[in-house]
Design a protein around this nucleic acid. Structure first.
Lengths: 196, 196
DNA sequence: ATTAAAATAGACTGATTGGTCTAGTTTCTT
DNA sequence: AAGAAACTAGACCAATCAGTCTATTTTAAT
């Protein structure tokens, strides 16, 4: 099975990698093209500007990767709490995630304050993530795993930003061990709402 | 009392503001000079490069501002917990902080992965902040405000990154109300270690 | 008042940026 | 096989970047 537009696909791959590490402003089109060994004409054939390229990268690379991470498929009868613990363990094994943080959050920190288009695109995904988490926590409340005093939406917001904050610390502070240690406190917070 | 080097001081002020909002890479020297109405010669008389200018800004503007925020002066007999609550209330009144997040954290997210010099400068301050917080929590433990099962250092790390994570969300998600709501969960975590 | 030093002023430079343009090549369609 | 469409190739462009340079003005020292 032959892939369509291998040039386009490769461009999106390299764009993701470069911007993840260096950020949007510090990544030049030239450096992407050089790394991908793709001439300029090809890139501008598929994407009319740097911004359009990056928006496509966000939609076709970043968002799908996030969907994998935030896919809270529970085993039958598994509690929400133990489900989250599993998620964190699996996150802690992704070296790049631990070292460089969440690519979504890093883009948001860089671009949201200065670009409305990027911001609204990222906010669409943010709201989607939030809703997924909120639903998960609400499920826990409805199943008497958590106290009704837990506000599913507010806790989801805290949870997301807190995990991002921990993940996106300087690489020189980042290790799987530190990540797990910090994340335990987030779980502690949730645990205090557990109905024993 | 006449200030020394008003040109230099103004440059540092404007550099802080511009980089806070736009980030390091997206802020050009030209835009700083234009906003400050200062010619290039003057800037390069005081600072030999953009990097040197920004390092001076970090040391002479960013760090002192942070010292104000993280100055956990306690009233006599005030508990650590109530002291932190006061800090958050005062933080929630700083509009720019709420909207644009912590300038230190934003610089760290942008520069730490790609520049060793900036990273080590920022890490010096990080360790200082951390030690201050650790000491504060340890004080609470020693005074029987918190359980001995609280690890002062680990909690300080969680606390810092969590607050930063909440603060540095997109401006379109940022409000003082949201900040307080999210921060309450961090305090909840700490509260669970309280000795009643 | 004279001289030296500090600061200002901005034209200029070479490198790099995002983006354009045209010519050629490959692939698809019929 | 022929023609059209898709894609590749990279030279080229204007704008912008950080940084240099020299000339001039202001301030400080004696």
């Amino acid at each position: 099975m032959k892939e369509k537009n291998p040039t386009r696909e490769k461009l999106l791959d390299i764009t993701f990698e470069e911007i993840y590490i260096h950020g949007y402003a510090s990544t030049s089109i030239g450096s992407i093209l050089k790394k991908a060994s793709i001439p300029k004409g090809s890139m501008y054939h598929f994407f009319k500007s740097k911004k359009v390229l990056v928006i496509a990268m966000i939609q076709e690379r970043l968002f799908p990767k996030m969907d994998l991470f935030f896919n809270y498929k529970k085993e039958k009868e598994q509690s929400v709490f133990s489900n989250l613990k599993d998620t964190f363990v699996s996150m802690s094994k992704h070296k790049k995630l631990i070292i460089y943080g969440c690519p979504f959050y890093r883009l948001m920190v860089e671009l949201s304050p200065i670009d409305k288009e990027f911001d609204s695109l990222l906010m669409l995904k943010y709201n989607e993530l939030l809703l997924g988490l909120e639903t998960l926590f609400q499920e826990g409340i409805d199943n008497n795993e958590f106290s009704k005093s837990l506000n599913a939406k507010h806790f989801a917001e805290f949870y997301l930003s807190s995990v991002w904050g921990v993940l996106s610390l300087s690489p020189s502070l980042s290790s799987a061990k530190n990540f797990i240690t910090h994340i335990r406190y987030i779980l502690n917070t949730l645990e205090s709402y557990k109905i024993s």
